[in-house]
Design a protein around this nucleic acid. Structure first.
Lengths: 119, 119
DNA sequence: ATTGTATATATAAAAAACTTATATATATTT
DNA sequence: AAATATATATAAGTTTTTTATATATACAAT
């Protein structure tokens, strides 16, 4: 069950991060990648090169707060949502649901035309 | 019912174009934008600046064939799928469905934690 | 001992994708 | 005559993402 290169992940990164933080309350970067990988059975994997810039951007935009903590001699940076981050999380998730509904209209199998799944 | 800026559209453009062509058999660029807009009630709108480069790229990759036709004194460029284009259309749609399923796992409302939709 | 793996964050260079602006041109409606 | 709809296209700029790289600790295996 290999994860596809997932071009579809484009544009959904912020939404995933905000939603996970809304749910977990407090997470650090590495934990986010592991959580996504575990919960989707490896279907979706976030790369660090993509994740960290997104986290920094969300922080800049006032959606996240950070607190650094030393655990086992290693530095961990915990992220939590600000009120506006919480609001944005809810909004983004609902926008994504709306987008998916629209996509389903476009992608659903058709009866007429040159069907992808002929009956 | 305004279309959101739709960052989510990122990465789905090729899939939409291939699927529409698989269904309609033959379409021109402008027709594709109108079809998407009409069928999704304006929820998804493709811009020309994004669409034409994608069409040209898909053609380069051997997924599309073009035939130009003059209609009412205006030039129209019709696109049709090649066999590999048809195969890719099917594949992309199924990859998208898989991606959405994985996303639903991440985005579904939770019972524990800081819930987005508390019961 | 040292190699490899897991944990942990981060940046820089490069590529890809997309937005916005612009250009061109005809037909139809106001 | 002006605005709108139809029709394709490119260029400049921005954003996003990938890939590569750097740093550092802990633990397990050899």
């Amino acid at each position: 069950m290999e994860a596809t290169s997932n071009e579809f992940l484009r544009g959904t990164l912020k939404t995933i991060v905000l939603k996970l933080l809304a749910e977990h309350g407090r997470m650090y970067g590495y934990e986010i990648t592991q959580s996504v990988k575990d919960r989707t059975n490896g279907e979706i994997t976030l790369t660090f090169g993509a994740l960290y810039p997104v986290l920094h951007k969300l922080e800049q935009e006032g959606f996240l707060l950070t607190e650094s903590e030393e655990v086992d001699g290693r530095l961990r940076k915990y992220y939590t949502l600000t009120p506006s981050g919480s609001a944005t999380a809810i909004q983004k998730v609902s926008e994504f649901e709306r987008f998916v509904e629209a996509m389903q209209i476009l992608l659903k199998p058709t009866e007429g035309g040159l069907s992808l799944s002929p009956l």
